[in-house]
Design a protein around this nucleic acid. Structure first.
Lengths: 250, 250
DNA sequence: CGACTTCTTGAGGAGACTCAAGGGTGGTGG
DNA sequence: CCACCACCCTTGAGTCTCCTCAAGAAGTCG
């Protein structure tokens, strides 16, 4: 189902490449990051709310989702991870894991030893700075979603969230065009933007009727991107400023 | 109104101290961070949505707020900054500033040169790692707020947000007890959790009636913290794990 | 082929919004 | 020092988006 990852394939480091081109030496220094890979079945728990372990992972293949479960059983999905995304970073700041991470598909992850991380901070300042920028990007994605969930109706939230997801997938694979294939159910979409499944369904129906977007079992096709953008009410973010202040490559 | 900041007062670096005790040498190396201070009047714009400049600041005194304005004029406050917080970091990841930052009180900020930041990444790996951890903490605060806004009613959102704010203020000054004095209006509270001012007012009235919390013109008194926690539905976060993996102090 | 998950549709109810207006409070200027 | 003004808070009434409850259809997997 999942082939062992090709360690010479640097797509695992795609997030880092958004801000600078990594040198051969840097790539070599970062290779230990993907040394300890592991395959997990769909539905596997990678991290669980409240547990004390704070391992971090790099997702190499497949999809995972990070969520919080509230006392009344309601769930908020905080992020879905795509290949190249890091898993478990926010847990490093606190004693107990704040979120639960599950595999939405069969996945391949690389477990990252924290001492390796510390060593890279020491020996690879540019890696450290890029990791810092990636963290700011994550923060920005949350800011956008907070603005959507706090201040827009269901249509706006859904439009904005799907655009955000599409932009991320497009960066991974520029060939997907206006299509968006993902392992998410309508219930997952609902939990991402804080509404009910029923309302998601009605909003998707409405989008189809208005020729804006179609959704068929995890396959979305964007028919009118401008309309979606307009409904969302948030500008497109252009990631990857040319950061001249970054430390020099070693 | 605002005295020139005491550069020997390291409370500006309180956020860094949550994860490790900085050595004298490190403190000395970080001093240039607070070299270029500036006083600004209440209401001043520190950053504006869409502008290209990406300066970052360290807030030394006063309060600022970061927010997004949506096309229909609605506002979402993403974060209020307290002394010791960094301003403008998420903007580093994108070409145009995503948020607007205004001074809620007269403030003193230190402008941080990005090349200085790059240099610190290079020479102070432990600083880099601590900055990374602070970023994860910021991310976590957004995750919590997203869960609140996405999945809780007004009472829950308000309770959770005030507890979060109180915990932050308590870290700055352990003497505040169960009081919380801040320059926020009820309209600000509303914009922080995505509801209307009117509804905030009614919820505060309700809290008072139920002997949970009182709010008088920016002065909140927590009467029943357990009840608030229960209404919020999110656990307390214990920041500042003893991170043994951090690089050694230089 | 059967059981489970996911999607779809209907009807009624509630939390939060909009619109509207009055009362406080603090700051400013005459 | 007092009066006025701007901002903030408070309260009421009607409306609407979205939720809850309910049930059936369609698709998927073992």
């Amino acid at each position: 189902m999942t082939d062992p990852p090709d360690l010479n394939d640097h797509s695992a480091l795609i997030r880092f490449q958004s801000y600078a081109t990594l040198t051969a030496d840097e790539l070599k220094a970062m290779m230990p990051l993907v040394a300890a890979t592991k395959e997990l079945a769909k539905g596997s728990l990678i991290q669980e709310e409240g547990e004390r372990t704070a391992a971090i992972y790099l997702l190499l293949q497949g999809w995972t989702a990070s969520s919080m479960i509230l006392p009344d059983g309601k769930r908020q999905i905080l992020k879905v991870h795509l290949a190249g995304d890091l898993i478990g970073l926010p847990s490093l700041a606190v004693t107990d894991a704040p979120d639960t991470v599950v595999a939405l598909t069969p996945v391949v992850v690389a477990r990252i030893d924290l001492y390796l991380l510390g060593e890279l901070f020491e020996t690879q300042p540019r890696f450290a700075a890029l990791l810092f920028l990636i963290s700011q990007e994550e923060r920005l994605m949350l800011m956008d979603r907070l603005a959507l969930v706090g201040r827009r109706d269901t249509a706006g939230r859904l439009a904005g969230m799907l655009l955000q997801l599409h932009a991320r997938m497009l960066r991974q694979n520029p060939d997907i065009g206006d299509t968006l294939t993902c392992p998410l159910t309508q219930a997952d979409l609902a939990d991402m933007i804080g509404v009910t499944t029923i309302h998601i369904n009605r909003t998707l129906m409405d989008f189809r009727e208005r020729q804006i977007l179609t959704w068929v079992r995890g396959k979305a096709t964007i028919l009118d991107k401008a309309a979606l953008r307009n409904i969302a009410g948030l500008p497109e973010r252009v990631v990857g400023r040319n950061a001249r202040w970054l430390p020099q490559a070693r």
